[in-house]
Design a protein around this nucleic acid. Structure first.
Lengths: 222, 222
DNA sequence: TTCGGGCCTTTTGTATACAGAACGACGGAA
DNA sequence: TTCCGTCGTTCTGTATACAAAAGGCCCGAA
């Protein structure tokens, strides 16, 4: 593997898992030393992260881990709604009934999954749903746009994972989307997606508001 | 200005204007020599172009100018429709009636503009429409996604500019979108956008089909 | 005490040298 | 004649050295 890719993977992972908090300055020299690569491949990694929006280079010369504010998340979800509602419509038209029927069944059993296998297992199921959606679209360009949104979503989502009741409702919302796609009901698939996204956004924003009201917990923004 | 930015701007401009044709191998050494920069900033420029999709690094070790096939354009327009129809809906809700009324008037006068000032002047007007849409959205994340699509569209569009009748119809379609946004009619704005995009796609694909049927003209793909 | 200017430090941006890997060409064998 | 292996060339990937610029700090003056 290339050193630049290795540096990118590690930095990306650290940002997504909130080990590098928003606002953290990313010094090339320090990071190169810490990751054991020279500045050249590290610069490539930083440039890639900057283009993907995980690193903000607009303020000052030194890049910083980009901010995750309520405003940014709201904007992200507006874009996400545009992409995912249309994706749900298209998937319902080009439907693969067996796949989405199977997914609906598994989402119906998600409460048990959450209890026995934990949160990560549930997010694995969501990832499978995303993959099924991508396959149904059969559109690499569209998938690239969705991946960009999901990248940022993965970071924002880590704020709100401490709410198991929400995940049970999320599973039910996903189940509804799956059945709508299975039945070829594009309008319902889009509407159910909207419902799901609004609820997810509300949860995240509520968590953010609580976090900001209690500054003794780990805060992302300054 | 940084050498890497200068190299990026020049390469981007050459790709968008079809002076670097799809499939052209992009040797770092040769390009660095031609553009008068060293390989380090040139690599950064190539990496950026690759992430934006104008350069394809998946085949072989040497990057090539990415392909513009009918399949790719169709995928691009599917994404574009998701983004622009929702953008039109949102703009209609958060409407700025004066701006879009003014734009509607100017699109109504576009046939004259095309006759007297030429095609570039018309595309300037379209760019102003895009900016107005961005302002109405007030969403930097969404704008970033739209910019990504417009980047590729700019290259595809150069295939089909030799059709002035199409541009007159395009202007009328834009005028309808503007009036719908001005009147706050989200559903009409979205539908008018769909109409416009389908017509644009058809024109481009037809031009592509003609071009591919007559291989004596300059072809992009091998 | 506060504001401004100049110096210094640190960091980024660029160039170049070197190593490793992949592609192509050439030759030999079947 | 065709296929396979090997060698050579050329390219990319990485490291490091240097230059330029930006920011911070201190000192002095108002």
């Amino acid at each position: 593997m290339r050193a630049s890719d290795a540096a990118y993977d590690r930095l990306r992972e650290e940002i997504l898992h909130w080990r590098l908090l928003p606002g953290t300055p990313l010094s090339e020299i320090e990071l190169a030393e810490r990751l054991g690569v020279s500045r050249t491949p590290l610069r490539a990694a930083l440039a890639r992260l900057a283009l993907e929006g995980l690193v903000d280079t607009s303020r000052g010369r030194t890049g910083v881990v980009s901010d995750v504010s309520a405003a940014t998340i709201t904007e992200l979800f507006e874009l996400r709604e545009a992409l995912e509602t249309q994706a749900a419509r298209l998937a319902a038209r080009r439907r693969d009934p067996e796949t989405f029927d199977a997914l609906a069944t598994r989402f119906a059993a998600a409460p048990e999954l959450l209890r026995t296998a934990g949160i990560d297992a549930y997010y694995g199921l969501v990832a499978e749903f995303d993959d099924a959606l991508d396959d149904a679209l059969g559109n690499a360009v569209y998938r690239g746009a969705l991946d960009g949104v999901r990248l940022h979503l993965a970071r924002a989502r880590r704020i709100a994972t401490d709410n198991p009741e929400r995940l049970v409702r999320s599973a039910e919302e996903h189940r509804l989307i799956c059945t709508a796609i299975r039945d070829g009901d594009a309008a319902l698939a889009a509407s159910a997606t909207t419902v799901h996204l609004k609820a997810s956004l509300t949860t995240i924003l509520d968590t953010l508001a609580v976090r900001d009201a209690r500054p003794d917990t780990t805060k992302g923004s300054a």
